[in-house]
Design a protein around this nucleic acid. Structure first.
Lengths: 140, 140, 140, 140
DNA sequence: GTGGTCTAGACCACA
DNA sequence: GTGGTCTAGACCACG
């Protein structure tokens, strides 16, 4: 399923959804080094978004070093991009988690309470890791 | 910490920082029902922001039902606001955590990996509960 | 029951609540011409409001001609004030109704629909005149 | 009447007039789900008000769930907004009517008298349904 | 003194 | 182009 889905009514900007989506696909090995990613115009048609938005996303991916533009050819996945994509995704997730945790701390929550909320959030969203996480967590 | 701090260079809007800060203070019981919160003008001086920005935050707090505006008097903390403030803060944190987790999942991370990132994020930001992860705590 | 009740958390200004309350008491004959109404200070204590607010209300009542200030004595109900109070109350109510109706019209509601809403509003608030109003309207 | 009119000298705030006006247009089906409503700047020019005032109205409409903001695009009418708009408008009118009726009751008016005032208010403002109301009682 | 509203003008991210 | 946010300064009703 080498396709991305974009939610226009989401609070997260469309160009960022595209960046995150492609980074995930590269991290997961769906797009392999050297492979061409869809052209800006094609991607725009596929996702039903403005080409400028796709171009902006591709530009960000290029700055991240995950793709390279080959003149006359298009954007190709960079060599060694897969671990970089994994790292980038983890950094993004860690930053998001840290922000949520900071917000919780300023609200005066104890680490235990934050743990409880995290547990609830991760189990409530399709997760099923309570048996192998080695943590006797009781999610409520 | 009987005061709010505002970071103008943050990505989160100032008025939202004020909302979150006051919600936390109400949740923590610093401001009790019936009590007056600082006036718009006074708060503006304290936080070094424009009065309109404070007014916007107060308006949002009123919509949340945490405070009530008394014309000519000021904004008083609503009765029963404390549990509502706690609930509101937890909902906001849970939503932020859920969003981060969703992002991680789309990047193909395993729950164990997400757990590791969460652990790193919470210990690196002032937390200190990694030793007691046996979790005898009752999180509710 | 010659007392007024004031709701500080209401949207209608306190001074107006006092005006409306006293006007109603005069219209109902509870306060009769020549009779003294409570002093500003006493009324302020009774209603738990700012004396300035009571003074403002009394001023409005005096402008309406419902009460007169007798120097050294206090505010007395004016002669012939009862029908004037009735008239004033009806004018206020008519104005409020007209405003609601105008709002409904700009929303594109038909007179029949407005009638239905009015019927529902008046029966739902302690009224019991659906039998004598002779209207077969179905209030939904 | 595919347009809104704003009365700056009215007691009702301009931004609320805009909210009510657009809600009516959505309720009437003039603006359909998915459609763009006039941009903040354009609406400001049309109504001769400050863009901030329009933005404030649009923000309120978004909180009501009647429109959604698409960054860089504009405000689009939300799906299922039409019945919601009708409901919202009727709730507002009913509340206004109920408030007027409550005021009348505290003034000691009988339901019949209130009916008479309502009749007068609705016929005096462009209505013409007094002939089909089947009501023998025309109290004025 | 209080909050509520409006104007004017600016900068930003996004599409 | 769009909406989102912030500043500055003003006027108003209310208590």
């Amino acid at each position: 399923m080498p396709d991305i889905r974009v939610d226009a009514s989401s609070a997260v900007p469309i160009f960022r959804q595209i960046v995150d989506g492609l980074r995930s696909l590269i991290a997961a090995g769906v797009y392999r080094p050297g492979e061409l990613i869809p052209s800006v115009r094609q991607q725009a048609v596929t996702l039903l978004v403005n080409p400028n938005t796709v171009a902006r996303a591709y530009e960000a991916l290029e700055r991240e070093g995950l793709v390279e533009s080959r003149k006359g050819v298009g954007m190709v996945v960079a060599t060694g991009s897969q671990p970089a994509a994994v790292r980038g995704a983890e950094e993004a997730v860690t930053a998001a988690l840290a922000e949520a945790i900071a917000q919780a701390r300023t609200a005066g929550m104890t680490p235990e309470r934050i743990d409880a909320l995290y547990r609830r959030a991760i189990t409530g969203s399709g997760g099923s890791n309570e048996s192998k996480s080695g943590r006797g967590a009781n999610h409520d």
